[in-house]
């Protein structure tokens, strides 16, 4: 009963956050300079033509009404029509890039999350050892570099100047399934992994050390429990929460951080799509992409919160 209420509460908060985000996105795109109808028709259009198109697009209606229409369409899966490219539905414009980006993010997550959780925990268990020192120094260095710099370094080292192992740009053929052209994806995935893993690794290391120094771990050792049980039964369950929270935060970051990395590799993903939509003032596409990115952010954090509640007895059971 208590548990259900707590989760419903989180869900409601998540939906509320999404609503606020949608309002912000809508207002921000409203504030963009220029009239959408003029943007579509170009500078040569007559004022009459602009007025007609404005009415067709619903730009003459009050802002609140425009918002309501937009949101209701969005919720029912209708993302509107793009201003450019022959009046295509937005869903078609962003469909393929969205898929491409999802593949990239999922691959990067599959590599970086287990790697960094494992590495962080291991470094904590072998605290002050050689591996721990290597991990702490290298992660500081990597964390200090922006992801596009990492991307360029990766290209220099593995693709152009030093070694010639992988193609410097990633343009998978849309008609062939991605998993058959993985070599195209190696460098972008590597770049994203290098950008994400320092944070999760350092966080896991710090939390694991805190847990290992806690009194309940000392107590478990003073009870004579084998180290295997001390770690797996006593330490790991308490480390799930930081692992989940950190992972969710970094995955959410990936969803946005991908924009710069895709640009470096000229990868046809959602980032590239967003950048071209901005240059073309394709407002419906900008709105759709930003709202999707924001939803991913909110949903990941929501999922992390719910998992946290489920694995923390104090939250799950309430007091007594």
């Amino acid at each position: 009963m208590h548990l259900a209420r707590l989760i419903l509460q989180r869900l409601a908060l998540g939906i509320g956050t999404l609503f606020l985000v949608s309002v912000l996105i809508f207002l921000a795109t409203q504030a963009l300079p220029g009239n959408a109808a003029r943007a579509i028709l170009g500078n040569t259009a007559t004022p009459e033509k602009v007025a007609v198109l404005s009415r067709q697009l619903g730009l003459d209606k009050p802002v609140a009404r425009q918002y309501a229409i937009w949101v209701s369409h969005f919720v029912s899966g209708n993302l509107g029509r793009s201003f450019v490219g022959m009046d295509q539905p937005v869903s078609q414009v962003i469909g393929q890039p969205l898929y491409n980006s999802t593949v990239l993010v999922v691959l990067a997550a599959l590599v970086s999350v287990p790697l960094s959780i494992g590495l962080g925990t291991y470094a904590a268990l072998r605290r002050d050892g050689r591996l721990d020192r290597a991990v702490t120094t290298s992660t500081v260095a990597l964390a200090a570099l922006p992801e596009f710099v990492i991307g360029i370094l990766v290209i220099i080292i593995l693709s152009t100047e030093v070694l010639h192992l992988f193609p410097p740009i990633a343009r998978p053929n849309p008609s062939v399934p991605v998993y058959r052209q993985l070599d195209e994806l190696v460098l972008p995935v590597l770049t994203l992994t290098l950008a994400v893993f320092p944070y999760i690794t350092r966080m896991m290391r710090a939390y694991t050390i805190e847990i290992l120094e806690s009194e309940y771990i000392s107590m478990a050792r003073l009870k004579g429990l084998p180290e295997r049980i001390v770690i797996w039964r006593h330490a790991v369950p308490n480390a799930i929460v930081p692992a989940v929270q950190g992972t969710a935060m970094q995955l959410a970051w990936l969803a946005g951080g991908i924009v710069a990395v895709e640009y470096v590799f000229a990868y046809p993903g959602i980032g590239s799509a967003l950048i071209s939509a901005i240059t073309e003032r394709d407002i419906p596409t900008i709105q759709a992409i930003t709202l999707i990115l924001a939803s991913v952010y909110v949903l990941l954090n929501l999922a992390a919160d719910i998992i946290t509640i489920l694995v923390t007895p104090r939250l799950r059971t309430g007091l007594r």
Binding site: S214, E215, Y216, S218, M219, A220, R221, L222, K223, G224, L225, P226, R233, H234, P237, N238, V311, T312, P313, R314
Partner: peptide, 24 residues
């Protein structure tokens, strides 16, 4: 040592709220 801790010699901590594992 592990085999005698808790068996031959055992320990009662100062603050049980910190020494009992909150997850178990």
């Amino acid at each position: 040592l592990r085999s005698i801790r808790g068996r031959l010699i055992s320990y009662v901590p100062q603050d049980p709220s910190m020494s009992l594992n909150p997850a178990l």
